[in-house]
Design a protein around this nucleic acid. Structure first.
Lengths: 338, 338
DNA sequence: CTGAAAGCGCTTACAG
DNA sequence: CTGAAAGCGCTTACAG
């Protein structure tokens, strides 16, 4: 591949001048610049980001750490990150850690080695202490989807509010006995969703009932299907289910299947609300009423924020103030609620 | 971050010696090596891949060019690529081109700039002439999923055979009037699937009928749903549909919905076979009979092949011979066939 | 077995 | 406005 040296030779100038001309520096005559640009064009010059990065101490490479690319909720994020990144001249290395802390550690080391300019982390949980180490080493980080109590910039949705609104809708449409499929409580987001559920009940003067707080251990759709069957075999049955947690993707379809199998009619006997605007939630019969998270926007916003942090961290070295962005969810009423 | 220079200072040796010790060269005494390793450990040394890459002319960064990350068929590939890459010490930059040739061009330039060691391309079509240019510039390339007539290493499935087998199954189970939802014929893979369809019909002495060769123009599930409705309004109706092409993901669920809406009973009145083992194909009622492509293995195999090409292209400079790998599909009978 | 030197391709003070 | 020099962090012939 042609280098700056080849161009210098062809244009009969010093490499420094080539470098200046290419970077658009004002201190180079229009005449020389034109000549240099022409040579660069002819030689099919592509700058070497490695050399550039080594010198400028930046690579325009980001890292995106995700729990699992097989999770359809994640793909919208990935698209958003990619769009925002390329628009600003960055690319990203995808770190698909498959819900494994060991993998995550390895990827994070690798990102440091390739001198990623910053890292987007969608896998934060309460035991993500290495994130603090990373941050202390001065690596720009933005969290997305999953929030940590403090310290980090984050882009996500207001999970408490979303869940609150969903449950309020159920209560407003006459449901009284609302179950929640709860997620792992070491994740801030599930604690928030649970809190929203509790708040809505409280507002309607309904006591919380452990019988209605479901937690399924497995990670597959089948686990949620079987778990729901099990729960429905105990009477009294609930008249609504908030599917606040799921396997890869959404638990809604699997819960719906179990409900139908138990001979219950949706939404007459029981209402169901799921999370996330995924294909699988749209093609059930009836299609699921959902809380929709703006995954694309989350990815885009987080990336823009990260690049802002990177680029505003000039020689002055002072960071941007911490900032938490809560995007709005959309409540989409379809066929599984009254 | 600590550099080789810091270690040299701490261990009181020359940087060359540090470099040798770290890379496991035999020509350094055990004693010095131990001392150096200890210092490296203490300083939390992480090699700088930029500098390393600049010097060694390799980055251990791959590019993965995909049509759209929103397509669930693609995510299995991405996972396979990631697993194989990290196992061999590589990472990859995800280039999600959103089915846009302009984006693709831009990403490809960027990959060259960051000196990617090789590129995996899942977006090849008959007008991918830039791929030939790239290849001529000596960049290792492996195609996946989508084949080109020649020149390139490729990992995909035998689409003709898969489609042939599916249609043969329909014929064996008594279907006679089999429609195919055909894909864009500028893609080798859809030509192959169509050929397999034709071959099976021919084998059973059934004449091909244009009325049964459906091509839908849009790219959404709704387009396939409406297209199918339209087709079914003309009599006589087919007694089977091979959904050889789809929008993002599979067309199976949308075709099934249209069929049911027209009052047809599946599989009694009509059989349906879809492509790909996606969640959306598994949760329909009845669940779809499908041809399943081993996406994960495709990603893994292609990546291993690419890295082999990269690493065997030593100073000798001679390439590995071209190689096309056809993995097997699996035919999974579920509820939409007799 | 170890060190001093050159070089990968770029940028940027420093002179002029 | 342009050039010569130094340096980013590493590796690798070349000496010794």
């Amino acid at each position: 591949m042609a280098t700056i040296k080849d161009i210098a030779q062809a244009a009969n100038v010093n490499t420094s001048t080539v470098s200046r001309a290419l970077s658009g520096s004002p201190k180079v005559s229009e005449e020389t610049r034109a000549r240099i640009l022409k040579c660069a064009e002819e030689l099919g010059y592509q700058p070497n980001f490695l050399a550039k990065g080594l010198r400028e101490r930046r690579t325009r490479i980001l890292g995106l750490v995700i729990s699992s690319i097989l999770n359809p909720s994640v793909t919208g994020i990935v698209r958003g990150v990619g769009d925002a990144a390329i628009k600003r001249g960055y690319v990203f290395v995808l770190c698909d850690v498959d819900n494994d802390a060991q993998n995550e550690k390895k990827y994070l080391d690798t990102l440091q080695s390739i001198c990623a300019d910053g890292i987007l982390v969608a896998t934060a949980n309460d035991s993500s202490d290495y994130l603090l180490r990373l941050k202390r080493s001065n690596c720009p980080i933005v969290l997305l989807v999953r929030e940590l109590e403090e310290h980090f910039d984050v882009v996500c949705v207001d999970n408490r509010q979303s869940s609150y609104k969903a449950v309020k809708y159920l209560l407003d449409t006459g449901c009284k006995d609302i179950a929640i499929v709860n997620g792992p409580q070491n994740l801030h987001l599930y604690r928030e969703r649970f809190q929203g559920y509790c708040n809505a009940l409280e507002e309607f003067g309904i006591a919380r009932n452990d019988r209605l707080i479901w937690g399924f251990s497995g990670h597959t759709g089948q686990d949620f299907y079987e778990g729901t069957l099990q729960k429905l075999k105990c009477s009294p049955r609930p008249d609504a289910i908030l599917a606040a947690s799921g396997p890869m993707g959404s638990s809604g379809p699997h819960i719906l299947r179990a409900v139908k199998e138990m001979g219950m009619c949706v939404p007459n006997d029981i209402s169901i609300i799921g999370f996330d605007d995924l294909v699988e939630n749209a093609i059930t019969d009836p299609p699921l009423t959902i809380v929709s998270q703006p995954f694309y926007d989350i990815g885009r916003t987080a990336t823009d924020r990260l690049i802002d942090k990177i680029e505003n961290k000039g020689p002055s070295g002072k960071d941007l103030p911490r900032c938490a962005t809560l995007l709005n969810t959309e409540f989409i009423v379809r066929g599984t609620t009254r």
